[in-house]
Amino acid sequence: MADEDRDHSDLSVTRRAFLKGGALATGALSSTLIPTPADAQLPVATESDPRRSVVEMTVNGVAYRKEVPNRTTLLQFLREHLTLTGAKMGCDRAQCGACTVVVNGRNVYSCTTLAVEATGAEVLTIEGLAKGDALHPIQQAFIQHSGFQCGFCTSGQIMTTKAFLDRVPRPTEDEARRAMSGNLCRCAAYKRILESVMTASRLMQA
C-alpha cells in the first residue's frame, strides 16, 4: 500500500496535487533506512503540517525514521508501515492484548499507543524474538506445551511473557497468571500458556 494512499489527511489533496505537479523528485526528505517501493511516493517534507510527525525508533534492532500522521498507532506503524504483521488487531481498544509488543522492556498494547509516543524507543516484536533459525526459549516453550490453538493471540501472549520474564525471571504460577491476564485467548489454551510461561522461565535461566 502506497503511503500516499495510507497517509491521507485533510491536506493530502493538496499534497497529491503537489505531487502531480512534478515534485516527486524532491520527495526524499521523509527518509527511511529501509526503502520500500511505497517510499517512492512519499511526499515532500511536511514539517509545516501539524498533523504529521517524524518518528524514529528501533524495531527489532533496526533503526527506522518515518514520517507518519500523528494519529498513527504503534500497531498501525508496525503492521502497515513496516509490514510487521505479527502483532494483531483484536479489538483496537486495549481490551484483548493481541497487539502486545515490548517497548523499552515493557509490554504495551500497541493498538492504544501512538507511534509518536514510541519515538526514541527500543521496540521488540514477535518477528525479532528468534535469532535466525534459533527460536527464543519462550517460543520453544509455547511449542513444547502447545500453548495456543488458532495462534491469533499468540504473538501477544509471547511478547507479554518476554517482558514479564525479563522483569520477573523466576515467577510463581500465580504471579504468571496475573501477568498474563491482560491477554485474551478465546481458544482458552490458558493451562498450556501458563505451562509455557513457567517452562520458558526455566529455559531462560539455563
Binding site: 510487521l84 504483521t85 517460543q139 504473538s155
Partner: peptide, 21 residues
C-alpha cells in the same frame, strides 16, 4: 506433540487474512 505449523504460529509468520496486502 505439537502441531506441524507450530513454528509459523509462534513466530508471527502465519499470515491471517488481515495480514495480507
Amino acid at each position: 506433540g505439537p502441531v506441524i505449523d507450530a513454528v509459523e504460529r509462534v513466530t508471527g509468520q502465519a499470515k491471517y487474512t488481515g495480514d495480507l496486502e
